[in-house]
Design a protein around this nucleic acid. Structure first.
Lengths: 280, 280
DNA sequence: CCCGTCCATACCGCCAGGGTATCGCTCGCG
DNA sequence: CGCGAGCGATACCCTGGCGGTATGGACGGG
């Protein structure tokens, strides 16, 4: 037995993130002295100095940096286990599918229809999320399966490819490029591209949008253009047009799920999704 | 805060594995009543029934099965974090390299020599392990980096390919195939192949060996033959010969390390290993 | 030089977690 | 059919650990 407790690890992580016992204590809603004691006890149990305290400044030792990284992940794993258990224990078992709005390549109705006929099928609950959130929601145990686009970070996930799509640019009717048969990225370099709300990695210019409706509205107003997978054509209204973009790499849509998941309901969904995609 | 404690999770895992509170309690070195109480408290905190108790039999509910799987992994992650922290906290930092004996493709001396010249280099400690153990030792935080062969389970690991090798069969001098320029698997189907000790997945026949020395001795005695990567030629004595095997897929050697590892010492080692392999 | 900041120490009270004794249920066996 | 063994649940006690308050001591800024 290594004897380390989840609570004291969480305490240490708070201190290591704040680099300040007092602030960490109030974040944890406890007083500062018990926090000091708990961290010291953790150091004693590990036999390792985690923090360099100099009565004016708190700094991480190399070992402390390791425990901050590893411990955060371990705590994530713990609460993911809790969430998955809670969701598995609901009286009415469900499968939570996470996807970006309009991120199903038009296949979701077919997949769901086929899935419902499976013997292991359970009701599917669809959870919409922002641009890069799929993977975190799957890893964290908030969702069972996801439909992903592009090249997300797949660590901790298993996946199957469903569909490879060419990309199009969506333009307002009357836009200077709207009549072209095809465009290149060079044609678009002066265009305003919206960015998804709450996404730190995205480029800073362009208006912020929260969902596909806002995006289409911006395009229809002529305030922006957007490069989307070809399947998005199905969602376009009459006041915008789609033009193929020649030199953008095709985007692949995939179904992904947490590594180690072995529920029959999930396996049936993945099988159904790949078969449905393969039948096109 | 989800409020789940590592100890109570370990308690539940023990009960779920034994399906018997009394035996689980003695495995945990506590009395049975506190164990019953702890599991019940865990169920209350999760709001989920984990075990079906029928006064004569204990069975897992579906949610209990989920928590058994996920909780085991979460506890693994926790103790891996502890081990990595302990190893990072040693006064003399070292890099622990795990490999099968004679599993380095002859490159280890070159890699180590080149690595020692790196600015971020630390002393390398080599840990030998049995056939399929590399990945578990890396995931568990017992080692920092490994040299792997074949197609191990790489979940939780990052890796780089170092070397693709053809395979040879090692035979006693005077063996019926020893004079051949090459053989096929069909030629070998009646031969005795040793199996590595402590490896459940291996085929049952053949004598058990613990290391390369025992293996070569068995071959020299004519009691066995073995299919090995070409680089093993360097370790062969004069009383055995090596013959290429035509229809065995080449084996790839790779360097692997735990996902998320970001120590400069490790990064330098991986870079050195790939550069050394690329220079051949 | 004093005051504010911040971590450590000292001490206290309470409850969670572990122990022992015992009950209740069920199955197997004579 | 009745008894005993096995096993989990309950009741009760006791101790150690965790959290709280008060305070000390080191350091830096004004």
């Amino acid at each position: 037995m290594d004897g380390i407790e989840a609570r004291e690890l969480a305490y240490f992580v708070a201190v290591a993130e704040e680099l300040n016992f007092t602030r960490a204590a109030e974040r944890l809603c406890i007083a500062q002295p018990p926090l000091s004691r708990a961290v010291k006890q953790l150091e004693r149990r590990l036999g390792v100095t985690l923090l360099e305290r100099s009565s004016r400044r708190v700094a991480l030792t190399p070992a402390g940096q390791v425990l901050l990284d590893e411990g955060r992940r371990a705590l994530e794993g713990l609460s993911a286990a809790v969430r998955r258990t809670r969701r598995a224990g609901r009286q009415e078992p469900r499968l939570t599918l996470v996807m970006k709005a309009v991120g199903d390549g038009g296949m979701l109705p077919d997949i769901l229809a086929a899935y419902e006929k499976e013997p292991d099928a359970v009701p599917v609950e669809v959870l919409f999320c922002g641009f890069g959130e799929h993977a975190a929601l799957l890893r964290g145990g908030f969702a069972d399966v996801g439909l992903l686009h592009g090249r997300p970070d797949l660590t901790g996930l298993d996946h199957e490819e469903l569909l490879v799509e060419e990309q199009i640019v969506v333009l307002r009717l009357g836009h200077r490029l709207a009549g072209r048969a095809a465009v290149t990225l060079a044609d678009l370099k002066d265009e305003v591209m919206p960015r998804w709300a709450g996404l730190p990695g995205d480029r800073g210019d362009g208006p912020e949008v929260r969902d596909a409706g806002q995006l289409l509205q911006l395009i229809a107003l002529g305030h922006a253009v957007a490069v989307l997978p070809e399947s998005a054509r199905a969602y376009l209204g009459g006041d915008v047009v789609a033009v193929p973009v020649l030199d953008v790499p095709p985007t692949t849509m995939m179904v992904a799920w947490p590594e180690w998941s072995r529920s029959p309901a999930l396996a049936a969904f993945v099988r159904t999704a790949t078969e449905t995609a393969g039948r096109t």
